[in-house]
Design a protein around this nucleic acid. Structure first.
Length: 383
RNA sequence: GUGGGUAUCGUCAAGUGGCCUAAGACCCUGGGUUGUGGCUCCAGUAUACGUGAGUUCGAAUCUCACUACCCACC
């Protein structure tokens, strides 16, 4: 029995836990460490699939979509009829679907969590829905993603120990049910999710429980939910190595460039985040010299590219002044250009990270990146 | 020229004698956003009551004159 998704670890950095690997999926190989653009509603907001596919120098080969949102709209059976999510949204690369667990957390006011599953009300029309681990797998089977995430409970921060403990144990029981319910492992692979909040011993407990299930990949959930960065790094440092070295490790919902570098350094292979597209739609550009708020008056007559160090489509064809104009007039095209550029920036940065690991200079590249990306902001704050 | 109307931050616009050292929105300025309930959210700047004189304990609010603009008529 062959798993749909397998992982080859090519190399581990000598001076950190950074790893270089390849994820093999039914829809192509993915080089890791990788950043996965997020396409919640079967679309990476404001960016065409073909543009996503051509991000960076090597292209993006995997993106995220969402079980909860597609279940509500347009409905997973419709996506099945369309021939699956890949065909429905015209994306030929790999797709990872989040299970809906996070939505249970982020739409907290509308839910009720029980052993069997979760009751929640649709944010669209207020209707009541019952979601269980089995439901999540059924929906993800219908969507046909390459990687399915387990239905988990993401505890908030802060949360007391006993709550987090119960939450992680529930997540483990749900994971077993997900695995039990998922049949066609040659078509789709199920990843388990570690929980445990910021409590290292609970993380260890969670890791031990989920690793017993021998899954093709594992995620770290419940981080980057509001805790201070130092705490997250500290917890990550401790818990990432508890996941098997020969399986991909996915840090869910991360993130910003600093979080990504710190994650790679601690042995993470996969990241996803809405940040580049969301901040892009709201007028921000991620550049080699830090983040820029394109609404700022100083760009009014700046006819240079968004990022002088970038060779993306946007930087080759449009000026800061023009993009500022689009943002200020709330033109959709502004969000499109910034989303594409920001994704390109992150995807390209991951390519450079991979190369630096191959060439044994990841720590140096990390320092170099931070000096360029965060120095301008630091200087500004010190003034 | 005659009659009528309107004049409040950059813009639009509340307010019809004391709670107005003047609402709100937009604009402008800055910030936020991390498994997307976001073409979004938060914050900040502006000594703006057309001018002058009156009435009154007290006027953006009432009176008069002037000025500007708008609409009719000649």
């Amino acid at each position: 029995m062959k798993h749909a998704v397998t992982f080859d670890l090519i190399k581990t950095d000598g001076r950190s836990r950074a790893r270089r690997g390849v994820l093999h999926t039914p829809h192509g190989d993915v080089q890791t460490p990788v950043f996965m653009p997020v396409g919640t509603q079967a679309t990476v907001k404001a960016v065409k699939p073909e543009d996503v596919a051509s991000l960076g120098h090597e292209g993006a080969h995997i993106l995220l979509s969402n079980t909860y949102h597609l279940y509500l709209k347009p409905g997973h059976e419709l996506v099945r009829k369309a021939g699956g999510l890949h065909r429905f949204m015209n994306w030929n690369g790999a797709i990872l679907t989040d299970s809906g667990g996070f939505q249970v957390f982020s739409l907290g006011a509308l839910r009720k969590i029980e052993e069997e599953g979760v009751w929640f009300r649709s944010y669209i029309d207020g209707s009541s829905h019952h979601f269980t681990p089995e439901t999540s797998i059924d929906v993800q089977n219908a969507l046909g993603s390459d990687i399915m995430m387990a239905f988990d409970e993401c505890a908030p921060y802060p949360a007391d120990r006993s709550y987090v403990r119960q939450s992680l144990e529930l997540t483990t029981r749900w994971l077993k049910r997900c695995k039990e319910h998922h049949r066609d492992v040659e078509r789709q692979s199920l990843f388990g999710i570690m929980q445990g909040g910021v409590y290292k011993d609970l993380r260890a407990q969670s890791a031990e429980q989920i690793c017993e299930l021998d899954l093709p990949g594992y995620a770290i959930g419940g981080l980057s939910v509001g805790e201070p960065a130092e705490i997250m790094y500290d917890v990550l440092e401790d818990c990432a190595p508890r996941l098997p070295a020969d399986r991909p490790r996915y840090l869910m919902g991360v993130g910003s460039p600093d979080y990504i570098f710190e994650g790679v350094e601690r042995g993470i292979d996969m990241f996803d985040c809405v940040l580049p597209t969301r901040v892009g739609r709201n007028g921000r550009a991620m550049t080699s010299e830090g983040e820029l708020n394109m609404k700022n008056a100083r760009f009014k007559e700046d006819f240079g590219p968004l990022d002088p160090g970038c060779d993306c489509y946007v930087c080759r064809n449009y000026s800061r002044a023009y993009i500022r104009h689009l943002v200020n007039t709330k033109e959709i095209f502004g969000g499109m250009l910034l989303s594409e550029h920001n994704l390109y920036f992150l995807v390209r940065t991951m390519e450079k990270i991979r190369k630096s690991i191959e060439e044994d200079r990841f720590p140096e590249y990390k320092r170099e990146f931070f000096d360029q990306y965060y120095a301008p902001k630091r200087d500004k704050e010190e003034q």
